[in-house]
Every structure is written in C-alpha cells, then in structure tokens.
Design a protein around this nucleic acid. Structure first.
Lengths: 358, 358
DNA sequence: GGAGATCCTCGAATCGATTCGATCGATTCG
DNA sequence: CGAATCGATCGAATCGATTCGAGGATCTCC
C-alpha cells in the first residue's frame, strides 16, 4: 500500500492512519518508523523528526495497542477476578486496601488492572479478555474451569487466600492459625460459650446457621479456614453465616446469636465490619461490651462507629498482600519463579474483649 | 506452514497451538476452523466436531483474544479513569455505587472494566491500553492530553460530572442547582452564617481555606459547581477544602470551621461522609446538632455512625449514573449518538438541619 | 586508497485470527 | 435432464505493528 503525501489532503476524514501511512509520508520504511516510536533502535535525529512530523500531520496517535499486544504477546493488562459483586467487594476496607496495594505495584510496572467478576454475565470476560496474568481474589471453586483456560493459554495465575492448585501461585494468610490465636485469647479470658459470625460460605450469600455440611461444601476458602481455626480451640462452636462483610450483616447475625440461650459470652466475627455489627446488636439489646460480651474482629482496619470501644482484632497486612500479588504477577511474567508467600496476622488488643462475667 | 498430525506427539511442549495448527490437524482450512469456533457461519456438524476434537487434542484454549481484538478492532475493554488513588475512590460509597452500576451494565454486554488512574505511574496505561471506550470519573483537567489521544484513536469518551468538552459524552449531575436547593433550605431555616466543606479542589488534595483563586484554578468540576451552588444563595460563603471524601476529613474540617468566631450556624458538606465528620466534630465540641448547628450532606448514601441523627442530604442517583455511563459507552460503540444525560438530586429531609437558634 | 568498523535504514517474515468472495458438490425445481 | 439454488468449505487479503538479519553509506585508521 502506498500513501501519497497528497492523499491526506484529498480525504478529509481518512480511515485512522497507521504506522505505514506515517512512514510513507515521512519517506521512511515502516520498520524505521516503528523504531522511531519505540526508541528501541538507533534512529538518526533528522529521521526521527521527520517521522514525528508526519505523525503530527496525519494526526496519528501512536502505535495501536491492539497490534502491539498481538505482536509482542503482551497486553499490559492484569486481570483481577473478584468473586463478589463489585459493590460487595468494595464495601470492605480490607479488600480495598488489598486492591490498593495491588494497583500500586502494578501501576508502577506500567500494568493496568482489569476488573472481572466470576459470577453472572461479567464472567464471560474471564476467557475473552487479553490478559498477561490473573489475580484471583477470594475466588470460589467455580473458577476451576477458568483456571484451566488460563493454564492452556500460559497465563500465570496468582490466587490470594485460595486452596492450593497446581500451576497457581499462592498468596496465603494464616487464617486458621490466626483465628485459633484469637480464640485462645478468648479461652484465656474464660470464655466457653463462644459463637462465630462467618463470611459468606457460598456464592449465593445465604444467611443461616453453620452446619458441618455447609462448611464442607463451602466455596469460600477463607471463611472455612477461619471456622476451622476457631474449632481448633472450640470444637463445638456454633455460628451463623453472614451474607457479606458489612456492618449491617454483623448486626443481623449478632441479633440472631444473642437471642440464643444460654447467650454466648463471646463472638468471633470473621471481619471487623461484622464485629462492629455484632457490637451494635449488643448495644440494641442492652448487652455491655466487653463486660457481658466479648467481640473479636478480623482484618485490623480502622472502623468507624464503635468509639470509644476499640476492637480486639487480628490485624492482617492487607496492603502488603496486594503488593505481594502484584510483585508475583510481575515476576511470573518475566518468567521468574518467585517463592510462595504467606502472611501472618497479629492479634491486636483492644477493649472489645474481656474476662468472662460469670 | 504445515503441521503434521504426528507433530503434536513429537513435541511434548509445543509452542502454544494456534488456529492454523488446529485446522491442520482437523484437516480443514483455518477459515473453517474460525467459523467453527465463532459460530458465525455455516459449518457442518461433522466438521465442527473434527475441529473441536483437534482443539482438544492440541490443548487449544480457543482463539487468542489479542489477535481477535486486532482483527475485529474491538477488545471488549472499557477504560475507567479515576482521578484519585484507588483507595480514596473506593472509600466513598457514592463512588462505589456508581462503579457498581457501571460494572453491571458493562458486564451485561460482555465488556470488562479496566481501572486506570490519571495520576502517578499508572497514568501510562491511559494511552497504552487497548480500550474500546473510556469513562472518566471525576476527572481533572490533567486529562486534556489523554482526551486528545482518545479522540485521535477514535475511542469514545464518556465523562461523568465534568466540564463539557467537544467529542466527550457528558453524564451530568445538577451539582450546582442541587446545592443551591439545599442552601435555600438552610436560608429558610434562618441561617445566615454558613460555611462549606468541599471535596478536594486539586489533585494534590491540599487542605485549607477556600479562596476565589483556588476555586477558579480547581481541577475538580464537581467541587467547584457545588461551591457555586452554595454561593448562589450565600454569596459570601466561607469554607475549607478537605483532602478527600472521608469521615476523618470531615472531622478535621469541622474542627477548623467550628473554631471560627462567630461560629457558623450551618455547614454545607459536599458529601455525606464529610457531613458525618462535621457532626462528629460538633459532638467533640459539645455543639448540638441540629439545635446549635445544622449540617447538610450530599450523596444520600446510608452512612453509619450518626444514629439516631438522620442526615439531611441531597440524594443523587449514584447507581443510575454509573448505569447511564455504561449504556452510553455501549451505544457509542455501536455508532449510536445517545442523547446527553443529566441527573438531578433530591433534597431528603433528615434531622441534621433545623431552625437557627439565635 | 582500501579494509574494517559503525551507524542507519530497509525488506520481509511474523504474531493469530477474521471475513469476503469464489468454488464445488449436492439438491431441488420446472 | 438441465438450470437454479443452497450449503459447506477454502484462499487470500487484511488488521497494525515489531524485529531480525542484511545491506548501504559513512567514517576511521593504517
């Protein structure tokens, strides 16, 4: 294809110009023009100037990312798969911090985040989008088929807090041990009648009492591990599943649990937001925290609305978790084989837990 | 290039198979194989089966999205540009609702969201990522250069609450009129000494008193419009800019404003989170709301932590705003020319405002 | 002045798929 | 039984760039 210099003036609205057109107008070959734009090879100053002038004249915006990504085999896009609806995922500060760390690390490497959900219609994007790597966040088992596709495509997969799978790089959190640590703290305070409010167990986000069957069938690795951790200390633990990590849900769950007789003297909430809800439920019922009820949280995010109470909670390095995922993605893209990463939580003492009041 | 049926067994780890390899193994042409996968043309059942069998045998994951997007000129990706750090953007429920509406609408059309920020290093993605359309959220003026690139590329741009620009499809909110409406409500209650807490004015997110110069130079269209709306009723309005739409920031701003003499009898906050912060500042100082101080919010999100108070606020249709942006993006992609969209807020009466106590 | 090194520039192959028009065989209709 | 029709398949062009090896010009140094 030849493009005359005059062609530009003949057609007022030409098809979008491409590199070839620019090169032609500049009187150089396409390869040289490419070099001029990418700066990847030696190009003399006058030539470079000619190319840029031609680009300017043709109103050329630079190499087409689509073509670039085909040729280079890289799109600069990292998929982030959330198992929730966006609204839900973004409602929990711990999650947001994680995404923030992720975005920070990826952005620094010139990579962008493609937000995907594994449920509903948005799931199509999972196999259709051009991605260089994928980070699964709290992914459910429904993702196994997607993971297979990623593997076939040679797309590295990073999973945050998920069951280990072959060819999936894990970023772990000691959900079980941390919860056990928290539970032992309660035990030391003398609590024996303890209940738990869990994160959603299924993607249906159904509320309701925990049963061993439900737990076993649960797609939420995190929720399950935290339940197990609590059971390590309180084998006969009872509890309810929430429909999401929100204060409102903690309130609902708290009401349910506190209506039981005998009333639990301590409640383990699987997130700080849930813990705040539980505390609010207690307030409603005139139950004093921590005198009559101890509440343990998880995440260590600063939550509004329980002042002057300060949550006793298991602090997890949310931001670092995201960062680690980002770094892992970058390393895997470069063909590296980073070491698996496991984070641990720290028990931060607040005053939402106290000795049992018998 | 010919690929023998036996080649697959010779090379244990072949370069990733492509459509041509699958077609060769199936004994059909690449065009037919393409038809079989896309279902876009007539393909006999036996042929289709042969193709899929070959794909299975070669462990082919389906057409490469990169190549597809080059050929079809579509990537299925919609860019979403946030002017904030992710962390900040996700901290405000109004923003999240908007993103949720957007995600919902886009997901339904098989499109995925590419999250971008216009500041820092992540900004590179703006011109490098393969996007079919872009939604600017609360974009600053720094985006003008990016918008130029989008225009050159023929990428439709949708801007939510931004200054109108040629070739940019606007989704508007009556920020000014709505704020004026709220201000008139305060006026009717007899308030004369009114102050405002604004959203960040610059991308530096600097706190500090409002000045006409700062307002004029501000990159935040929304903040400016809301200030203007308040000025429509209270021309000599004073106020401070916050560093973000957070409760904590409202608290800081509230303390500053309530330290003035004479103390304002009403404060207009440019978001509900800021309003809650202001109320908390009042509580700190022993100032009763609404008896001694009226506080007006904006957004109409349900905010925790001011019970039993209920915020008087300007309710905006956040989710609908996002949905409208999504629909506009889809329509523009189809070459349509949707009508500009403008949403209006509704003043919802709570009990955080009341008659001036003189 | 010629051999060799340097520096630019170019041609051609390639990335992996889609799509239009052409072709070929089988079926149907008159 | 010939012609028109229809369905399935194929070839070739195309999307827009990158990259490698080769080639030509210029310069250096002996």
């Amino acid at each position: 294809m030849r493009v005359e210099a005059s062609a530009a003036s003949e057609r007022p609205v030409p098809a979008r110009p491409n590199l070839a057109a620019v090169a032609a107008l500049a009187g150089v070959s396409a390869s040289t023009a490419s070099l001029a734009f990418s700066g990847a090879g030696p190009v003399s100053e006058p030539t470079r100037a000619k190319v840029f002038a031609a680009a300017e004249a043709l109103n050329y915006a630079g190499p087409d990312p689509r073509a670039q990504s085909l040729r280079r085999g890289r799109s600069g896009i990292i998929g982030v798969v959330i198992d929730d609806r966006l609204r839900d995922a973004f409602r929990d500060p711990a999650n947001i911090s994680m995404l923030d760390g992720l975005a920070d690390e990826l952005g620094g490497a010139g990579l962008a985040m493609l937000l995907l959900t594994d449920t509903g219609e948005g799931a199509a994007g999972i196999s259709l989008a051009p991605m260089d790597a994928v980070v699964l966040v709290g992914c459910s088992t429904e993702l196994h088929s997607s993971v297979k596709i990623f593997r076939q495509r040679g797309i590295p997969v990073i999973a945050i807090e998920a069951e280990h799978m072959p060819d999936v790089f894990p970023i772990d959190l000691d959900n079980r041990d941390a919860t056990a640590l928290g539970a032992r703290h309660l035990k030391q305070l003398g609590h024996e009648n303890v209940a738990v409010v869990s994160l959603p167990l299924e993607s249906s986000h159904a509320r309701g009492p925990l049963t061993r069957e439900r737990e076993a069938a649960s797609g939420s690795f995190t929720a399950r591990q935290r339940i197990l951790g609590a059971r390590d200390v309180y084998p006969n633990l009872v509890g309810v599943a929430s429909a999401g990590s929100f204060i409102e849900e903690g309130l609902i769950a708290g009401r349910a649990l506190l209506a039981a007789t005998p009333r639990p003297t301590a409640i383990i909430a699987q997130s700080d937001l849930l813990a705040v809800g539980v505390i609010r439920a207690a307030a409603e019922l005139g139950i004093a925290v921590p005198a009559d009820l101890s509440v343990l949280g998880f995440d260590g995010v600063s939550v509004e609305g329980v002042a002057p109470l300060e949550l006793t909670t298991l602090v997890q390095p949310s931001v670092e978790k995201g960062r680690a995922a980002g770094r892992a993605a970058i390393a895997l893209l470069d063909g590296g084989e980073p070491d698996p990463i496991a984070f641990v939580c720290v028990l931060r003492m607040g005053n939402s837990t106290g000795p049992v009041n018998s």
